[in-house]
C-alpha cells in the first residue's frame, strides 16, 4: 500500500495535508495522533470511502475505489458495530458472501476464524448479546473472512478492557507473522510502541516517522528518573543521571522517556512552528 501527497479537506477544515506513506507485507504500521488528527480521514481514503482532493493512493496495485481490490482487503472502520439482530455466524457469513467468498471455503473459514477467536461456542447467539470485547473480535472475524492480504483497523482497541486489548494485540501479531500487511490507527501510544514495526505521527500532516526505537533515539538524550520516596519524576540529561541517583536514599527508577512524552513534545513543537 502506498500513499503519495494526499490532501483532503472538509469545507474549511484541512484534515490531511500532503501525506505520503507506505506499508509492506508482513509489517504493522501505526498511524498515531490525537483525536481530530486526520487518521480516520486518511484511512477512509485508503479503503475507498472518500476520494483525496489531491494526491494518489495505490492499494495492492489498484485504485482504492476498484471494487475487486476490496476482496483482498479487510477493514474495521472506526466506531463500527456488527449487526445486532444477526447471529455471530451470519455476521461473518454475509460479509464473506459480499466479499465474494464461496460456499465450502467460506464455511470452513468461518469455522476456523470463530474457533481461533473463541467465538465458536457463541456462533448462534445474536451479536447483540456479546460483550464489547467479543463484538470487536467478531468485527475482526468479519474483516478477515476473505483472507485479506492487507488489514486496516481504525482504533481497534478503543474502549476494550486490558485483557481484550492484549488478545487483539496477540491476534495482530499472528496476522503479521502470517505475512499480512497491517495498518493500524491509534491514539494509544503504548499500543503503537508495542505492536508496530513503524510509526507515523500524524497531526494533520506527518510530523515524524520511523521505527519506535528510531524515533525514541532521535528525540531523546534525556532520561526520566522517578524517585519512589517522593513520587516525583525528574527529567535529566544522560550525563547527569548518576549524580542525581547517587543523592537518592530510597528506591528509584530510571527510564527513557516513553513514546508518549516524545509524542507530546513533537506535537507541541509542531504547533509552535
Amino acid at each position: 500500500m502506498e500513499v503519495w501527497g494526499v490532501w483532503k479537506s472538509f469545507g474549511p477544515i484541512l484534515a490531511n495535508e500532503d501525506i505520503s506513506m507506505d506499508l509492506e507485507r508482513g509489517e504493522i504500521v501505526s498511524l498515531l495522533g490525537p483525536n481530530g488528527a486526520g487518521k480516520t480521514t486518511l484511512v477512509r481514503q485508503i479503503y475507498g470511502e472518500l476520494r483525496p482532493d489531491k494526491g494518489r493512493i495505490s492499494l495492492l496495485g489498484s485504485k482504492p475505489s476498484d471494487s475487486s481490490v476490496k476482496e483482498r482487503v479487510g477493514v474495521i472502520p472506526q466506531e463500527c458495530s456488527p449487526y445486532d439482530d444477526l447471529s455471530v455466524w451470519d455476521n461473518v457469513y454475509y460479509v464473506g458472501k459480499l466479499k465474494g467468498v464461496k460456499g465450502e471455503v467460506l464455511k470452513e473459514r468461518i469455522r476456523s476464524l470463530l474457533t481461533g477467536l473463541g467465538l465458536w461456542e457463541r456462533r448462534d447467539s445474536l451479536a447483540d448479546l456479546l460483550s464489547g470485547g467479543m463484538k470487536r473480535k467478531l468485527l475482526i472475524a468479519m474483516a478477515l473472512v476473505n483472507d485479506p492480504e492487507l488489514v486496516i483497523l481504525d482504533e481497534p482497541t478503543v474502549g476494550l478492557d486490558p485483557e481484550s486489548r492484549r488478545e487483539v494485540w496477540d491476534l495482530l501479531n499472528q496476522l503479521r507473522a502470517s505475512g499480512k500487511g497491517i495498518l493500524l490507527t491509534t491514539h494509544y501510544l503504548d499500543e503503537a510502541e508495542r505492536l508496530s514495526d513503524r510509526v507515523y505521527f500524524l497531526n494533520r500532516k506527518i510530523v515524524a516517522k520511523g521505527t519506535p526505537s528510531q524515533i525514541k533515539e532521535r528525540f531523546s538524550d534525556q532520561y526520566d528518573v522517578i524517585d519512589y520516596t517522593t513520587g516525583r519524576t525528574i527529567r535529566v540529561s544522560g550525563d547527569k543521571v548518576k549524580d542525581v541517583i547517587s543523592k537518592m536514599s530510597g528506591k528509584f527508577e530510571v527510564r527513557l522517556p516513553s513514546l508518549e512524552e516524545i509524542y507530546l513534545e513533537v506535537l507541541s513543537d509542531d504547533q509552535r512552528s
Partner: peptide, 15 residues
C-alpha cells in the same frame, strides 16, 4: 451511519 455500517459495507465492496 452512526454505527459505521456504511464504512463497513463500502470496505466490503458494496456501493
Amino acid at each position: 451511519r452512526n454505527r459505521g455500517r456504511f464504512s463497513l459495507m463500502i470496505a466490503s465492496g458494496v456501493p
